[in-house]
Each structure stands twice: as structure tokens, then as C-alpha cells.
Design a protein around this nucleic acid. Structure first.
Lengths: 217, 217
DNA sequence: GGATGTGAATGTCTTCACAGCT
DNA sequence: AGCTGTGAAGACATTCACATCC
């Protein structure tokens, strides 16, 4: 019998790597769907996703059983299920703090819109930038942060300010009730329990590469 | 007796998480140095870096023993050591493929220059963009990729092209002898053994956040 | 027959705890 | 006395291998 465990049951022990892999399976499923493929095996997901079929099945098993033995998974069905698991069945209200170069790249990043992430407000502390129009957004002064986050019921904040300003922004955003933050500043941020934080740290990634290059022969 | 193991001995079993933490220790050491702090304990590195003191000591132990018992680590000394481990004692020649919004943010990203990453060439396939001047760089047509990578002895390539163009770029770059790639395209790339690859996947990070938000209560 | 779902086995990473220097 | 460096223990994640079901 096919039973989908609720998030409550499944929560608690899902590792970050499992979540990352779910994202990647989802992407592969979108591609498969675009190709008109109807069914997919754990083996195919594994090969395209750079993992093993056992890993795919184990990852999925934390949330339910979505396949048919002997057949594999229905592409549209599994796609829907993973979207559900990742919370992508709905749109998310996002704000961007920091209207620099990185912020500028993010606001017009098509892949965000495609996945239901709507940037509904942009803030900057620079008087020169406030009032500028970016696509459908007018850059707001950072004093309005709390008010606008609340009024627009923002759920996720993207921090794209310089490192030395990031922690202050995060403190304010957390106090305003936001529980998810994507940080582009190259600093380790402190957030209370219950606030989800992910970091995009390009310097760290580059250093991973130089380490690899340096430690060969 | 203080013995620094060579990269050769240490190579082989260093995990990605260890390398990431080394990056973060390095950053903390730079901050400590800027404050004029002379010595630091594994406990302080741990607290600021969001880990444990045992983890810090274990990470460092893979490469040598850099501390003094009873005292801690000399800030400038440990800083130098970690820079050495990560290969940051020298400059690295970098090229950027893809002159879109993300590329534009990267080329003026101060934190890259600061760490010795010099973007020495920029490519795009769009005729409109070729010839434009970005800072000190003129955007080159992608036909010149192989020639320019070789002539400038580029060591690291940053891929910032749309997903469906990324694999082709990577294949060419790898054939041209580059052994380290930082990928911003939202696809899983195939590279042969011996080529280091890191991915910056903003959509995946966002999905990590929506998963966390959705699986609470 | 063929591919899933899953306990058990294995492998990897983290934490403990303490001997050993300074 | 204080803090490092490190084997040993423990926690966690991946892989194996097979019973189960379409």
C-alpha cells in the first residue's frame, strides 16, 4: 500500500545531502517530463544525478514509496511528490536586501521565477540607490525593512550586502519574524534555532578548487 | 617536533567538509589578525566558526601540528599554514565564460581579487556582447576560448552560461587542459577524473530553505 | 523478469576523553 | 594548569543484497 508519510513524521532526521539530492532528482524529472518520458528508474535518476540507485531509493524511502516494482517511477507523479516534499507546490514571497552587483544578478535570475520564488521587495542602505527602478521593483531604503517584510508577509530573505553589514541585517530580519535566509555575504551568520540558513560562498568554493589543484602531486 | 606533512602524504582522504572548514578558519584568522590578536585557541576558532574545538584540532591534524600546548595557535603562523594548505600563497589565473548578469557580478567581486583570483579573460557567445569592455577586460568571442586559455595559462574557469550550454563549455575547457571549474549553471556537469568541480546552485539552496520551512509543524 | 523498498553491513565523519607538551 | 594532538568510541550516511510486489 502506498503511504506518504507526513512532513511531521519525516522531519527530524533528513540530512542536508538528502535534500540536495532531492533537488537534483527534481531537476532531472523536469527534464524527463520535457522530453515526454513517462517512467524513470532509480538507476536512471542515479546515473544522471551522479549517485547510486540505492541512494535514490533510500532518499525517497524517507518520505514514502512512490514507485512500482518492476516498472520504476511515473515521471509526473514523482515530480509532483518531490515538489510537495520540498514545498514547491506553492509560490514563496522573497525579499532581497542589498542592491549591489550580486543583488542585480539575482533579481533577474530566471531560474528563481521559474521555481516560484517571487522577489517582492528590494532594499539598500545607499541613498543613491534608493528609488532606482529594477524591473518591477523600486529600491527601498533599509529603514523600511521591518514594515515592508511584515506587510508583504515575506517568508525568505536573500542577504546580498557586504560582510560587515550582514549580521545586523540578519538580526533585524529574524526579529521581524522571517525564518529562512539565503546568505551571499562571506561571513558565518548567527541565527537562532528555528531559522533556516543557507550560505552561498563563492570564495569558499574557489578555495576548494585551489586546494584540489595544489594537493595533486 | 613540528612536522608539516606534505600535500602528497595528506592527500587522498581529506573530506570536502574539512576543506570548507579550513576556509572558514582562514577567514576567522584574517579577522583576528586585523584585530591585532596574536594567539587563538581551537575553542575560539570553533565558536566563531560554528563547530567544536575537537573538530578544529582534528581538521588541522591532517596537515601537521601547528599549535603550542597550553597556549593555542599563533594567529599569523596558522594563517600562513592554512593559506599554504589551500594553495593561496600565490595568485591564480582565472577565466570567466558567460558575460551575463552573474558574470558581471563576479568580475567586479572584490573578495575574489582579495584572495588572489585574477580574472584574465571573459568570453561570451553573443555577438552583441563581444567587444564590450568590462573593467579591464574586453569580452572575447567564444571561438577564441581554447587559444586564450592556453596562451594565458588559465588554471580555473568559471562557467556562468545558461544550463543548456554549460556541458559543452566544460568539455571544451577540459580538453584545453583546465583542471578546475566553478559552475554556476543549474545542471550536473560531467568531468573526467582529475578535474576539480564545484557548483554554486542558488535554486538548490532556495529549495533547501523551502524544505525546512515546509517540514516544520 | 524486473525494479522497488529496506534491514543489515560497511564506510565515513564527528565527538570523546585523555596522554603529552609547554 | 592549560590546551593541543590523537586513538578509540560513537553517530551518521552510504552501499549491499535480497525479499517483495507489479
Amino acid at each position: 500500500m502506498k503511504k506518504t508519510r507526513s512532513p511531521v513524521e519525516s522531519r527530524g532526521k533528513i540530512s542536508e545531502s538528502t535534500v540536495r539530492r532531492l533537488s537534483s532528482y527534481l531537476r532531472l524529472l523536469h527534464e524527463a517530463e520535457a522530453r515526454g518520458q513517462e517512467t524513470i528508474s532509480s538507476e536512471e535518476l542515479a546515473e544522471r544525478g551522479g549517485t547510486t540507485s540505492a541512494q535514490v531509493r533510500k532518499d525517497l524511502s524517507f518520505f514514502g514509496s512512490f514507485g512500482k516494482r518492476g516498472l520504476g517511477y511515473s515521471v509526473p507523479e514523482l515530480l509532483r511528490e518531490i515538489e510537495g516534499i520540498l514545498g514547491l507546490h506553492r509560490r514563496w514571497r522573497v525579499a532581497l536586501v542589498g542592491a549591489g552587483k550580486i543583488g542585480s544578478a539575482l533579481i533577474s535570475y530566471r531560474n528563481f521565477q521559474r521555481r516560484g520564488f517571487e522577489i517582492q521587495a528590494v532594499f539598500d542602505s545607499d541613498r543613491e540607490k534608493v528609488g532606482q527602478v529594477w524591473g518591477s521593483q523600486i529600491i527601498l531604503p533599509d529603514e523600511e525593512l521591518e514594515r515592508v517584510l511584515a506587510e508583504n508577509q515575506i517568508e525568505i530573505v536573500i542577504v546580498a550586502v557586504p560582510g560587515d553589514a550582514a549580521q545586523k541585517v540578519v538580526d533585524r530580519v529574524v526579529r521581524a519574524g522571517v525564518r529562512a535566509i539565503l546568505n551571499f555575504a562571506p561571513v558565518r551568520l548567527r541565527v537562532p534555532d528555528g531559522v533556516a540558513l543557507r550560505n552561498v560562498d563563492m570564495v569558499m568554493e574557489m578555495e576548494g578548487l585551489t586546494f584540489a589543484l595544489s594537493s595533486r602531486e
